[in-house]
């Protein structure tokens, strides 16, 4: 305890701030990991994106206003991801024909192949569409929050969401399921 009173005080304050920040970050890790995985479509790339995001968040810690850490970190991750895809062309995205009102066939919701088809259909969405879908549906953000986070108008959030759903429906029905079988 040879430190002067001033030094000690600053130190404690910094510690407290850091603890709040770190605590917040730690509790956000599962959501961030899930979001990273959904954006990158791969376990390894997802973990890389998560690490980059954490690194960036830590280095910019002083810029955090102290409120809504989730929106702040999700923005960082979204921007990192966007910059990343600009740099490197990823696996080719299968563009689906846009079509109106195609019902999604989901004959066997618990069926493991159905899950795969849905996963493949989601992976096939353009990144902008997938991002909106993930923020709204998986992260439970409001349209307004999503718009703020992505810095796009709320109307664009809604139109991307609607188009994402049309493309999913299209993708899911391009290979059909028939209710054939099983001890009939």
């Amino acid at each position: 305890m040879s430190r002067g009173p001033d030094g000690e005080k600053d130190n404690t304050l910094e510690m407290r701030e850091q603890t709040k920040f770190e605590h917040g970050m730690l509790s956000l890790m599962p959501s961030l990991r899930r979001y990273a995985r959904s954006l990158t479509r791969s376990d390894a790339d997802g973990e890389d994106l998560l690490q980059d995001c954490v690194e960036k968040a830590l280095s910019r810690q002083t810029q955090w206003s102290g409120s809504n850490l989730k929106a702040w970190t999700f923005t960082i991750m979204t921007n990192l991801y966007r910059n990343g895809i600009k740099r490197a062309a990823r696996a080719p995205l299968a563009p689906f024909e846009d079509a109106d009102s195609i019902p999604a066939e989901n004959a066997y919701p618990g069926d493991p192949l159905e899950r795969r088809r849905l996963a493949a259909a989601l992976d096939g969405l353009a990144p902008d569409f997938r991002t909106v879908l993930m923020l709204v549906v998986v992260e439970g953000m409001s349209y307004r929050e999503t718009a703020n986070l992505l810095q796009i108008p709320e109307g664009t959030v809604m139109s991307r969401l609607a188009r994402a759903r049309r493309q999913l429906a299209q993708a899911l029905q391009s290979s059909n399921v028939i209710p054939l079988r099983r001890s009939e």
Partner: peptide, 21 residues
């Protein structure tokens, strides 16, 4: 109704990724 079911399916699909390590 289909969209709502799909929302649930999407959440279920990604839920396992939301974990702490």
């Amino acid at each position: 109704c289909r969209w709502q079911e799909q929302n649930i399916a999407i959440r279920d699909l990604y839920e396992p990724y939301a974990l702490s390590r």
